[in-house]
Write a protein that binds this DNA or RNA. Structure first.
Lengths: 199, 199
DNA sequence: ATAGGGAATTAACCTAAGTTTATTGGTGCA
DNA sequence: TGCACCAATAAACTTAGGTTAATTCCCTAT
């Protein structure tokens, strides 16, 4: 799998959002990231001014609060654009790390150079806007689920949305995605199993 | 205050995100909304395919869950673009209502016509992308505050972010913004007052 | 083969917030 | 003037989830 192919996967992915993008503007240099499970694309606090494209694998966005609580904000499956919108656009340090849940492959390029080149193209901007709309809507839904649903229901939804993950991903990380402690998740799983058995 | 002035306020607002927007493309018809406190721009479940611009006043985005829990997702002060990104772009019914917290003035136009006209212009698309980046980042921060902070801390932050609102806005609504019941908020306020008195 | 370390489970206890119900306090309206 | 209604508070009780600590299980490295 060479760089050209990886780059083409990125282009194919973005074309999905808008078909008329002038990719001849895209000239910036590409970095390659081969991640082993547990390795990071970048860490909370870094200047994460690059745009990453996850060619294969699975990553999670996680951040640690002042009090040391770890929280998995988001889980992203390839193929997908990943990175910190905030860090890229405002130039502030990233508020989360991106960590490989499974071995993963990604490419990246400096956001400001890439954006400068591509923002000349209307097609790209339309695609980018659609991408932003999509991730915004996802965030709204996640917020709503945190507010309105119980931890049990959020776990069941997690199993529905990522059926391949329970078993693969450590339960601590699943718990942190749901917003609870691993102990609470363990209790919830026990209760689910029990009520399934008694039926 | 006539329509032309209200439209100009919208244009000024958007120019803030990008200065080179070709507003001659903007030809669609404008509706005017004069809202008394408590009235709605649209309601949860409506086809909210319009973009609204809040010229003056204050609104809240609120949604009611299956179980009848009300939650205030967001509070917007004029001048600001408001509306449901999801309902506009996907054409699905709105998941929240927009309600005037104080008497407010807004204008609106059909999103699809507006977008079709304005998306011809690169400057507009850059402004729109920047707008989306901004609201996405705000959502990320709100999610983080829900997960990592206690209700008490979220209340204190609310008072910091909207110093004019405690006293103006009913406490039920403040509670629903923080994600707790009015009873819980009342308890929290009592505890704060008490610990302030004992100091 | 075994010792050590992390992951998951379980139990006991604690705390924040929800629920129910009752009381107080304004505000508007007859 | 007083009634009615809603907002806010308060008290009593329940519950979900956090915290601490002990136990088991499994995997890896020696």
């Amino acid at each position: 799998m060479d760089r050209l192919q990886l780059k083409q996967q990125f282009i194919d992915y973005f074309n999905q959002y808008h078909s008329k993008i002038d990719w001849s503007l895209f000239k910036c240099e590409i970095d390659l990231h081969l991640l082993k499970k547990g390795q990071h694309l970048f860490q909370q606090g870094d200047d994460a001014k690059r745009l990453y494209f996850l060619n294969s694998g699975l990553v999670r966005y996680c951040n640690v609060s002042d009090k040391g609580k770890e929280y998995t904000q988001s889980i992203a499956k390839a193929p997908r654009v990943v990175g910190s919108t905030r860090a890229m656009t405002l130039g502030t340090p990233a508020l989360f790390s991106i960590e490989a849940v499974t071995d993963s492959i990604a490419i990246s390029f400096p956001w400001d150079i890439f954006y400068q080149q591509m923002s000349q193209d209307l097609g790209f901007m339309k695609a980018y806007a659609t991408f932003l709309e999509t991730i915004f809507i996802q965030k709204e839904l996640k917020e709503s689920s945190i507010i309105h649903l119980s931890a049990t229901q959020r776990y069941l939804n997690f199993c529905r949305d990522f059926p391949e993950l329970p078993g693969t991903m450590p339960q601590q990380q699943i718990a942190s995605y749901i917003g609870i402690t691993p102990i609470a998740l363990s209790r919830i799983r026990a209760r689910i199993k029990e009520s399934a058995g008694s039926r």
